[in-house]
């Protein structure tokens, strides 16, 4: 009896705290978004985070895309070898890359790199009173620290994913042509036939959302971290874990919304 009650109470508490955290994150996101569109704008901070999120993630994202495109080509070859392998493989690669692998893998890579870095940076600023100092220097920390980073995520991820799309397809092409001895022109033709604008656009929409989620979690966890270096450490972990899970969950939702019928 007692145990059952404890269990119910425990579940109730967990549910409540889930709602509370969700609400807090939603408010944080709204506040951040509203600061994106209201001056003053901190172009310098935006540019810094844009470079950090987009440009410096390029090598990681490029390599990931290249290899996964290649792997898809290889895997589908073993499955489809007997049938119209050539056109099928090109189609599978381009579909998998533009719809899923591009946005998701780029998102996860950026979550690991940038989400963590943002949480650590803002978290350190929190525990060393730098955020309070901003407040005393006529600068709104949400506007100065959070808004430019959210915007950078929103803008940088689609660009990254566009590049990832191209390189993912290129990875498939390389494997197909170099290793599987397919004809280059036939592969390219098959790729172009299978390429759909809608796939790419939805992929880019996903990317923008992922960019927002990643930077949001990095900023939120950092902003609310407490308890010195250890607190910053756990904020960093929490940011990456939360961003990755949210990213995959929203990936499912969007896929369901656009592709399931």
């Amino acid at each position: 009896m007692d145990m059952a009650l404890d269990l119910v109470a425990g579940i109730g508490r967990a549910t409540l705290s889930l709602f509370r955290v969700t609400g807090a994150i939603a408010l944080f996101a709204l506040s951040g978004l509203s600061h994106i569109v209201r001056p003053p704008f901190y172009g310098r901070v935006f540019w810094g985070s844009f470079l950090e999120t987009g440009f410096f993630s390029l090598p990681v994202v490029a390599l990931t895309a290249l290899f996964s495109g290649g792997v898809i080509a290889l895997q589908s070859y073993t499955g489809f070898a007997q049938y119209h392998a050539q056109s099928a493989i090109a189609g599978i690669v381009v579909l998998a890359v533009t719809r899923e692998l591009g946005p998701v893998l780029a998102g996860l890579m950026v979550a690991g790199r940038v989400g963590a870095a943002m949480a650590a940076q803002i978290g350190t600023m929190r525990v060393t009173d730098q955020i309070d100092a901003l407040d005393t220097l006529s600068t709104n920390p949400m506007k100065y620290l959070v808004a430019p980073r959210l915007l950078a995520g929103l803008v940088a991820l689609p660009l990254l994913v566009l590049i990832a799309d191209v390189l993912g397809v290129a990875g498939g092409f390389l494997v197909a042509v170099v290793k599987l001895d397919f004809s280059a022109t036939a592969y390219i033709t098959a790729t172009l036939n299978a390429l759909k604008t809608e796939d790419v656009t939805v992929g880019l929409v996903k990317a923008a959302l992922f960019g927002f989620l990643i930077t949001l979690m990095g900023c939120y966890q950092g902003y609310n971290s407490k308890g010195g270096a250890e607190g910053v450490g756990s904020a960093t972990t929490a940011a990456v874990v939360a961003a990755s899970i949210l990213l995959l969950a929203f990936d499912y939702l969007i896929t369901d919304l656009f592709f399931s019928h």
Binding site: Q121, T124, M125, T128, D129, Q130, D132, A133, L134, D135, T136, L137, S138, N140
Partner: peptide, 20 residues
């Protein structure tokens, strides 16, 4: 309150300089 805060100069206990 934001405006009033702008009229206060504060030296924090650990300086709290922006390290970036």
């Amino acid at each position: 309150r934001d405006r009033l805060r702008g009229e206060i100069g504060m030296l924090f206990q650990n300086a709290a300089l922006f390290d970036s």
